[in-house]
Design a protein around this nucleic acid. Sequence first.
DNA 1: ATATTGACTGACCCGTGGGTCAATAAATGA
DNA 2: TCATTTATTGACCCACGGGTCAGTCAATAT
Lengths: 216, 216
Amino acid sequence: MGRKSIADIRRTELAQAAFEVLAEHGLQGTTLQRVAAHTGASKASVLHYYATKQALIEAALRKGNSTLREEAVLYMRLAQTPWERFYAIIEANFSPTTYLPRMAHGWVAMCAEVPHNPQFARLQRVIYRRLNGNLRSALIAVEPDADAAERGANMVSLLIDGIWLRLGMQVGGLSREEALDHLESHLAQRYGTTPERLAARARMAEVAATLAAKTV
Amino acid sequence: MGRKSIADIRRTELAQAAFEVLAEHGLQGTTLQRVAAHTGASKASVLHYYATKQALIEAALRKGNSTLREEAVLYMRLAQTPWERFYAIIEANFSPTTYLPRMAHGWVAMCAEVPHNPQFARLQRVIYRRLNGNLRSALIAVEPDADAAERGANMVSLLIDGIWLRLGMQVGGLSREEALDHLESHLAQRYGTTPERLAARARMAEVAATLAAKTV
DNA sequence: ATATTGACTGACCCGTGGGTCAATAAATGA
DNA sequence: TCATTTATTGACCCACGGGTCAGTCAATAT
């Protein structure tokens, strides 16, 4: 029953491979040939499962995104207070398993294509809305003014984007810890160093650590 | 004597055209054909002036960068206090003549190639260092702690990157005014609303306005 | 008038990448 | 056992993009 057909297996295999190739070689460098080679299959075989390159890339991005999303959900489930939910989002965005140069490469490559590819634009909008929405809904509980919360959420998401961009370029790239420190310094300025916030931060950091240990 | 040879004229023409095409169509879409068409010349003619596509793109980016730099220098020359120098940088980065979707497209396209192209990486490093250095040297005058100034500079440059990235993607894109507002809100949090800062901000905004009027 | 130089181009070459197709091999079912 | 689907592939096609080349044309120099 839970048996996956070969077709399904191949499809996810290929999507995974496509994502890895994309991360390593950029969009231009992601040829059907290379993706095929990466799984030991033939180019024609790739086309057999994905009628067009576009479809393959799309599946690859969707997969990468869903991986990230699942992790976020995992963190979110363990969060109880607003600040904990907030830090769940942060930790998810800087988790050791996703905050990696290759991931960032793939992401930036996609960003660059957004203006020329409606599919990418759509996906990007989804990601953006989810992140901003989550941040806002967490902040609105600690910052009564909805407008202020909106601004705060935007600021944080802008910082995250900037940090990821740098990771992708390896120019002024920040380590996971440096990235979190930067964010923390901003939060301290903006929201003061209340015990609740610090506790939430510590708690989610711990959650992240244990989850990371389990995954490895 | 200041007479420019046809060769020089053509070369800058082509670099300009290449930049425009790059901004509009992305790196993949920047073909010799298109650049040629954009100036009314033939593909072979383009190759006549730039032996290789790589060389052409490089010239295009160099030109785009120098345009931005010249504007920054212009602003900088009129700044007198540290905060004025700081806002000169900000205004230069959000000047109406440069803070444009097409510019951002070009920039993001370049960012995406950085991991695969040493030339781009080098150029990006130069840009990054200049921006960060300028910000830091301005901030160090208002924030005695060198480490804090470094952090502050980094934060601002991260925000700028994030904002530009969004402009390039037109996802959560901010208008010039919104962008400046966001930055202002961050600065207010971090450095308080001192009269000097506000005065400097107003002064450089005015400078920017008059310069913009002159250029148009 | 002629030689020389430099601007400019059409035609061509070649590699590559997306996509098609028909054929073969393996699995599945009747 | 035979039929029918399904997996997989090599060979091929076509378009396009970078780059070469030989040669035309106009300006300048002698």
